[in-house]
């Protein structure tokens, strides 16, 4: 049985659960199905145990925001206690930033002669992912989406192009939406607004921190010579 009071209030009646208490105070209470825990407490929560009659109670208090959770145990079938050693950090590839970087280093994937001037350029309606010029020196606004591009991305791009046109009093500004996949509906809308798109597949490569580079050894040689 779990009672919780904090940002909301909850009550979870008796049932068979897995309760996980992590080394940093994080608590996860899992029911037999679904990925998400039914109840949880964040990292840094303070934990105490008390006994109330026939129940063992796990008390967890988080200070900011104040959240109190009480987990009542009436029988425990299995306890595992272990100290895990793990200094690895998860590396994730395939984020929006990875695609922005890919275009940054391979501007030819937009078109030949395309030059990138600025990344994260601030304009009135937000921040342009990539701003540059084509080979005819016409300003180009690039909006990047990591997965399937949607209608919102079109409106975002349209606003940015508008902002640039206003700022430069230049009617000739191109807008290009870049994503690995763009549905036809979105392409049609882009065409209607006089905008363009590029479907860009980019390699999702995880950095390999065990592999050294030759440069590391060149540097070492330079320092030994000096």
């Amino acid at each position: 049985m779990v009672k919780y009071q904090g940002r909301a209030k909850s009550f979870l009646d008796w049932g068979e659960r897995i309760v996980m208490i992590k080394q940093d105070g994080t608590i996860l209470i899992h029911q037999p199905i679904l990925r998400e825990p039914a109840n949880w407490q964040p990292s840094g929560s303070k934990i105490t145990f008390t006994i109330d009659g026939e129940y063992l109670i796990l008390n967890s208090i988080n200070s900011n925001p104040v959240e109190k959770m009480k987990v009542y145990f009436r029988s425990i079938s299995f306890i595992l206690v272990t100290a895990l050693r793990d200094r690895a950090k998860i590396l994730v590839s395939g984020m929006e930033n990875d695609l922005v970087n890919y275009i940054l280093f391979n501007p030819d994937c937009i078109e030949e002669g395309f030059r990138i001037k600025k990344r994260e350029k601030s304009v009135r309606s937000g921040s342009i992912d990539l701003f540059g010029y084509d080979k005819n020196h016409i300003p180009v606004v690039i909006e990047v989406k990591r997965g399937l591009a949607n209608i919102n991305a079109v409106h975002q791009l349209r606003m940015y192009v508008k902002d640039i046109k206003k700022d430069r009093e230049d009617v000739n500004v191109r807008g290009i939406l870049c994503a690995p996949r763009i549905p036809d509906m979105v392409k049609n809308l882009l065409t209607d607004y006089g905008l363009e798109w590029r479907e860009i597949e980019y390699p999702t490569v995880l950095p390999d921190d065990h592999q050294k580079t030759l440069e590391e050894f060149s540097e070492k040689n330079v320092t030994t010579i000096l």
Binding site: H210, Q211, K212, T213, L214, E216, F217
Partner: peptide
């Protein structure tokens, strides 16, 4: 041919 090493995990 020069090849940089990997470090022991």
């Amino acid at each position: 041919y020069l090849l940089a090493p990997r470090i022991e995990s």
